[in-house]
Design a protein around this nucleic acid. Structure first.
Lengths: 331, 331
DNA sequence: GCCATTGTCGCAACCGCTTCCTATTCTGCG
DNA sequence: CGCAGAATAGGAAGCGGTTGCGACAATGGC
């Protein structure tokens, strides 16, 4: 149905290998011949079949991206960065949503492996067990992990400096004169979030820390609990922006104004943080750049097949000052 | 490097065609043989090469999704719906961001065509010219358009009932007793948005209509202009939620409270609309379902190769009442 | 003018898999 | 016991490309 190399060869009166060489621009074909072939190919609307090419070259020019859910603005941004970088290198990105489900994630990995993607980019769900690691390594496929700095595994990783981010938030709140400060975070054992918590506690050792779900609802609930048990608290550091919005909602429901009655700092700096009311002071992490960098590393890994040393990249973070924090000193 | 059919065949002492049959479970191989083959395949960790398979079967089990930007929560949701549906049918989804750029979109289409994807799902940038349509059709690839109900083209489409949505918003605002109402929308000629505008104007014929960018900034600017020129307006229908947030911002900057001083209705019902302060009253469109339905149609189209009649599906919409609209009658 | 070199191009193998066709064995029946 | 027909397995052709190798002609140095 589609026009193939053979068709072009027949039409141009040359061997199909000559057509292949002409198209790929490789050495060993007369300029005149090449021109003629190119012309014919153009006229016939020839489109190389990249599947077939991949079969022989062994490279699919396709990358896999597994995130928990692309509807999460954080991952959407990472995905965009990854896609742009992949596109710039002539690669496609196949999108997978794992929903933080081990089994589903594994199914995706197998599927991607069967498609012989050049590499996989993923935010691994929970810490990988030894067996999991082995299984992954067994596929002999380059893998870059998003947001997993620590751990003894031997994969390349890209993430933001979560520890520093937590520290920044803590220092900022103290600098603004807050004394009683709380930290609302996700479940214990969540890698990134606990890094943030550790950094924060380094700056604010006597902070109140509450664990819960790292969602809007979770932020609401935790804030409710907090305001009830610790009414003396004047500032809250939420483990991510969505939780921070939950805190703001909970505050509003109790008639507390942000920032006058309660200061809030988030983490991520998703787009809505600037749009929210009041605009949220938060720790920015370069999501787009993280996605892009991960692809760069992945492609580098795919290039040199030998199991080169894993590359680890940690991006800096930055506190974005907006209007959700009250300066207590000027009051 | 990877273990192939041949390896399994050698190890099991049978021909490779037998292995193929055993694995595919097709008729014509002794149960005992099949068992042995399966065992060997398992032991060798055999993974079929789906690229090679696709080469001969002609189906890649891959779909392309071209959106303007996955960071847009609307498209993220559509993408998620599409991915889930694709996954359920054993297909992969490759993600492309066109940035509303004709040329970029075309490059993606060509690239996807070269990969022999089974079909493409896209929110076409602007109305397609005759030439564009022809070019697309020329690829002989199933295509489903997102959010393009009208138009004389011959593609299948999936979208929400934008006209009805606009009408709903208009009626609601009138029912709440508003007399002077404005509509802030995107650039003229934007298909969906103008459908919404038409529906709205059907319900509120004397509305003030302002065109601008359909972004947060655009919402801000347009609202600024509106409040200056038409201070008598008490309610605004924004063409999408993000614009509505812009309106809310502009109102806040001028000391106007929402909804007491200005009522706002959005469109889309993105996640943040429920989280915003105040929660935004908006027209819900089933984004996830749109993505999923588009994939279903695409797969159906890919199944029966004959150029079957294009399928068009329009989803219902629903007004979600939250707290951004004031009831003028009870005042 | 001859041979070695270089430039062009065709031939054929191969990538890993599916599938049609054919050869062989097994089965059941008269 | 012989034979038709079904069951089973192997052979081989392709899917659409890439690439090493050899054939052949043109070129250049002596």
């Amino acid at each position: 149905m589609a026009v193939t190399l053979k068709d072009v060869a027949r039409e141009a009166g040359v061997d199909l290998s000559t057509v292949s060489r002409s198209l790929s621009g490789s050495y060993g074909v007369h300029e005149e011949t090449r021109k003629r072939v190119l012309e014919v190919a153009e006229r016939l609307h020839y489109r190389p079949n990249r599947i077939a090419r991949g079969l022989v070259t062994g490279r699919s020019h396709t990358l896999g991206l597994i995130v928990s859910d692309v509807r999460n603005p954080f991952f959407a941004e990472v995905a965009r960065g990854a896609e742009d970088a992949a596109c710039a290198h002539g690669c496609d990105l196949v999108l997978c949503n794992s929903d933080l489900d081990q089994a589903k994630q594994m199914r995706y990995i197998v599927s991607l492996a069967e498609k012989r993607v050049d590499g996989i980019l993923m935010n691994s769900v929970s810490a990988l067990g030894k067996a999991q690691q082995q299984a992954l390594a067994g596929f002999g496929m380059p893998i870059v992990l998003l947001n997993r700095a620590s751990g003894a595994h031997s994969f390349s990783t890209v993430c933001a400096d979560n520890y520093l981010g937590g520290q920044l938030a803590g220092r900022y709140l103290k600098a603004k004169g807050h004394i009683r400060i709380a930290h609302l975070t996700g479940p214990r054992g969540h890698g990134n979030l606990s890094d943030r918590a550790r950094g924060f506690l380094n700056a604010v050792p006597d902070a109140v820390v509450l664990h819960g779900r790292h969602t809007f609802q979770g932020g609401c609930e935790l804030a409710g609990k907090l305001l009830e048990r610790h009414p003396e608290v004047t500032a809250v550091f939420a483990a991510n922006d969505v939780m921070a919005f939950g805190v703001m909602r909970a505050a509003a429901e109790r008639g507390l104004r942000v920032p006058q009655d309660l200061s809030v700092v988030g983490f991520d700096n998703i787009e809505f943080s600037g749009i929210a009311h009041p605009p949220l002071t938060t720790v920015h992490q370069p999501k787009y750049e993280i996605g892009a960098a991960a692809v760069e590393i992945l492609l580098r890994l795919a290039e040199k097949q030998n199991g080169s040393a894993p590359e680890r990249r940690i991006f800096g973070v930055e506190l974005i000052e907006r209007d959700s924090v009250q300066d207590c000193r000027t009051r």
